[in-house]
């Protein structure tokens, strides 16, 4: 019994908070998702599965999943390969190692809002004095309206480079930690066996030894891309609202549940439940990787 009291002394405050701010919201949301709830957070009229049917047949909602897929198809492999490349390069040098590591890691200090500001108003500003257009101008090319042009959809270049800059350093650190766990004697044995120092040791030792790190990084990248919101909102949003294209799931949900067109918590909750179920599988896999 004394153990019970001590246990709750330690765990109680956290457990109550978890209940109130995680479990109650989820339960409430499940409830709301079966009701009509416009501009109110109390359920008004029971509608059964209608909110779910509406969401799953709603073209913009399905398009938002498509937008996520396109974004993930670019950002996940690019970040993975470039972060691994940076980690390998930084890990192989000795002079100025800490300097390079710090430089690549420094963008983590910036928020997505700050990065969006730089990308939207300076690098990819559509006018002639934007950095990208200035560089194009040196080659005699015409300026491009980076964030508003839809054909070709240049905004993908803006959004993908932004996230790359911001997250590469973080994943590089994870890969460096993984590389440092590889026992040195594996390499020595391979060299004695005549393996070349470059490609062969990478292919047969480094990459297989990095398997756990790689799986974790891939899942993390996928989950992070799924939750993309900040840079889309800040780069593409204006005071006249958000354009009809390039709306990833959370942007869509934000405008459904909290947008200026009225707060629709019934549909918003149904959307949140669907998105949670879609991501739960991936995170379950992630949980198994990290708890191992």
């Amino acid at each position: 019994m004394r153990h019970g009291r001590a246990f709750w002394l330690f765990v109680g405050p956290f457990a109550i908070g978890l209940l109130v701010f995680v479990y109650v919201p989820i339960a409430w949301s499940l409830l709301l998702s079966f009701f009509d709830a416009r501009n109110t957070v109390t359920p008004t009229e029971f509608v059964g599965l209608r909110n779910y049917v509406d969401m799953l047949t709603d073209a913009p909602f399905l398009r938002s999943l498509g937008t996520f897929s396109v974004f993930a198809a670019f950002i996940v492999p690019l970040t993975f390969v470039l972060a691994l490349a940076l980690a390998l390069l930084v890990n192989q040098i000795s002079f100025m190692k800490a300097f390079f590591r710090s430089v690549f890691f420094l963008p983590t200090a910036c928020s997505y809002v700050v990065a969006s500001l730089v990308w939207k108003l300076s690098i990819f500003n559509g006018v002639r004095f934007g950095l990208a257009n200035t560089v194009l101008g040196w080659f005699g090319a015409e300026p491009i309206a980076w964030t508003v042009s839809t054909s070709p959809p240049w905004y993908w270049l803006v959004l993908v480079t932004l996230r790359l800059w911001l997250q590469l350093g973080f994943y590089m650190i994870l890969f460096i930690a993984g590389l440092q766990r590889i026992p040195q004697h594996l390499y020595e044995a391979a060299w004695i066996d005549g393996a070349s120092r470059g490609w062969q040791t990478l292919r047969y030792i480094t990459l297989p030894q990095l398997r756990t790190t790689s799986v974790a990084v891939l899942l993390l990248l996928l989950i992070a891309a799924y939750q993309a919101f900040d840079e889309f909102y800040n780069v593409l949003g204006t005071d006249r609202g958000y354009p009809p294209f390039a709306r990833p799931p959370l942007i869509y949900l934000y405008y459904t549940a909290l947008g200026s067109g009225g707060q629709d918590f019934g549909h918003g909750s149904a959307g949140a439940v669907i998105l949670t179920l879609l991501i739960a599988g991936v995170t379950l896999l992630q949980g198994r990787v990290i708890t191992r």
Binding site: V11, L18, S29, F229, F265
Partner: peptide, 30 residues
């Protein structure tokens, strides 16, 4: 050591499956 420690632990681990950003609507409601 406590009889129900495992129950609490499972409740904690279950939340790891749900990224916080996805539940901003439910949390806002509460």
């Amino acid at each position: 050591p406590y009889r129900y420690a495992n129950v609490v632990l499972y409740l904690v681990i279950a939340t790891l499956m749900i990224p916080a950003a996805v539940t901003f609507v439910p949390t806002f409601v509460v």
